[in-house]
Design a protein around this nucleic acid. Structure first.
Length: 504
RNA sequence: GCCCCCAUCGUCUAGAGGCCUAGGACGCCACCCUUUCAAGGUGGAGAUCAGGGGUUCGAAUCCCCUUGGGGGCACCA
């Protein structure tokens, strides 16, 4: 039941890497479109030539793809071809259409050339600030005669194009915040739609494109509420039906200000690099400002699409809570099929090889064998290196003091390690299994009157360098007989060399 | 300064007049499980529904005011 009348879009500006907020706006547009079978479009707003780069463009597109947000029309791959009936979907390749629209507005006197210099505008603003007035364009060029315009052009002055803001109240029924009305007197006066260098500005391009691409619903962040009346004015002037608008609540820093790079990690790529799953991040983002109204927490993207309803989107902003994201991410890691998890873990292990944290990339079989004990212990994919990296490097950075369990002293530990080593050495490749090793060592503990936990801890630290690891015997099996014995020997030696200096 | 918006546990939220002695989740605490760490299970602390007025037999839910918070006011997007 596709609905061809529903057309929404995400219009990111490649002036920075894909931002969590942009991803969330994209996700909601995507959910809105997919829920009703509408069309979702991505359009790159790259008219800020000074700050736009292809690297950012690539980061945005790859990030959206990674998140599983798919679009029907728009740029396919960074630098690659665009798909869709309104291609191209990059504004710098659509300059002609803005020129045509601007000329129409000029001809109808809905817009006019403005020769004010940056210095003049700056002075105006400063004066208004000093007089404690709201900044607005004073209208210096609003009523120039043809002769005056010619004279300025003759002086070699460049003209920007300003749109005439008509008096009146602009109102719309916002999809999330109900009725909003704004008096055009508060819009800051006539605004620039084309810069002096001929490059059109956001307010103009967004409307021209939304009009030509037949966008039916504009769903964007709350920070755009004040722009909407300007856009409605432009739609009217262009003689195009005004789309519906919906303004999403903002994602907030812990101090409840608008989420920013300075206070919160905002780049989607960073979350990805830290081992967050697309499923986890998407699930988390969907619940920021929206809820299905049930007590479900863990939902796949398809389940969210099924339940999504823009009427249930909140009006108030939501603080980004990384701890909750991590919990949700863990939920998704635990749900991943074995082979899928191995595939996703591999790049993180490779990265650890590349920067020397581990010495080699483990084979899939090794990882697969470990899955039963690590899958429930991973908050993120990247955590795998911390958790079991000791298996693939001999540089444990062992602290001898840590080898001695709390209730023991160094001498006892040395004796225990030696006894345990002898038992372990008695096993061969065939009996080097968790259910063979454990009973043997428990028998030793029994015979000596020790606590199992103490012996196990001494062996754990001796062989891994850490006090927190997956279950000991599974760990020793993964380590292998030879390396286990060698590490116990090395630890015993380290203990002996510090001797009685360890006062534990 | 002006305009607009928002307001339920620390956080994300359920709640559309009686089902609310306000439910769930994260986080926190305790216990269980247990060789460590997790995961899982059970239980607990945690919100006089920002405050004050109304409306109503009855309000977290409707109205008004106050307070608090946020967003926006470019030849950026």
């Amino acid at each position: 039941m596709p609905d061809p009348t529903i057309r929404v879009r995400l219009a990111p500006s490649p002036t920075g890497p894909l931002h969590i907020g942009t991803a969330r706006t994209g996700l909601f547009n995507f959910l809105f479109a997919r829920h009703v079978g509408g069309t979702f479009i991505v359009r790159l707003e790259d008219t800020d030539v000074a700050r736009s780069t292809v690297e950012h463009e690539r980061d945005i597109i790859e990030g959206l793809h990674w998140l599983g947000i798919t679009w029907d029309e728009g740029p396919d791959v960074a630098g690659g071809g665009d798909v869709g009936p309104f291609a191209p979907y990059r504004q710098m390749q659509r300059l002609e259409s803005y020129k045509v629209a601007a000329d129409r507005l000029l001809a109808a006197d809905r817009a006019y050339p403005c020769f004010c210099t940056p210095d003049e505008l700056d002075a105006d603003r400063k004066a208004q600030e000093a007089a404690r007035q709201a900044p607005r364009y004073v209208g210096r060029c609003a009523n120039l005669t043809e002769d005056e315009r010619r004279a300025r052009v003759g002086e070699g002055r460049r003209a920007a194009i300003r749109f005439r803001v008509r008096p009146g109240v602009i109102g719309w029924n916002d999809m999330v915040r109900d009725r909003i009305e704004i008096d055009t007197a508060n819009l800051g006066g006539d605004f620039v739609i084309v810069r002096g260098d001929g490059i059109p500005l956001y307010h103009f391009t967004v409307v021209v494109d939304d009009a030509t691409m037949e966008i039916s619903h504009v769903i964007r962040g709350e920070d755009h509420v004040g722009n909407t009346p300007k856009h409605i004015l432009l739609f009217e002037a262009l003689g195009h039906p005004v789309p519906a608008f919906g303004h999403l609540p903002l994602i907030l820093n812990p101090d409840r200000t608008k989420m920013s790079k300075r206070k919160t990690q905002t780049a989607v790529a960073d979350y990805r690099a830290q081992g967050f799953l697309r499923e986890g991040l998407m699930n988390y983002l969907a619940y920021l400002g929206w809820s299905p109204g049930t007590e479900e927490d863990v939902l796949s993207i398809d389940e969210v699409i099924e339940r999504f309803d823009i009427d249930k989107v909140h009006k108030g902003g939501a603080v980004f809570d990384r701890e909750r994201l991590e919990w949700l991410n863990g939920q998704w890691i635990r749900r991943l099929p074995a082979e899928e998890l191995i595939d996703r873990l591999r790049p993180f292990l490779q990265a650890a090889v590349d920067d020397g944290r581990i010495e080699r990339l483990p084979a899939d079989d090794e990882i697969r064998a470990l899955l039963p004990v690590i899958q429930e212990r991973l908050p993120t994919l990247a955590a795998v290196v911390d958790l079991v990296g000791f298996l693939w490097t001999d540089d444990l950075g062992l602290d001898p003091a840590l080898v001695v369990p709390k209730r023991w002293d160094a001498a006892t530990t040395r004796v225990a390690l030696a006894a345990a080593r002898e038992i372990l050495a008695g096993h061969d490749a065939v009996t080097w299994e968790a259910d063979e090793l454990e009973p043997a060592l428990r028998a030793l503990v029994e015979a000596r009157g020790w606590k199992a936990g103490d012996l196990f801890m001494a062996i754990r630290v001796a062989t891994t360098g850490r006090t927190a690891t997956p279950p000991l015997f599974d760990t020793l099996v993964a380590l292998g007989r030879d390396r286990t014995l060698a590490r116990i020997d090395a630890a015993a030696e380290a203990l002996a060399s510090v001797g009685g200096a360890i006062a534990r």
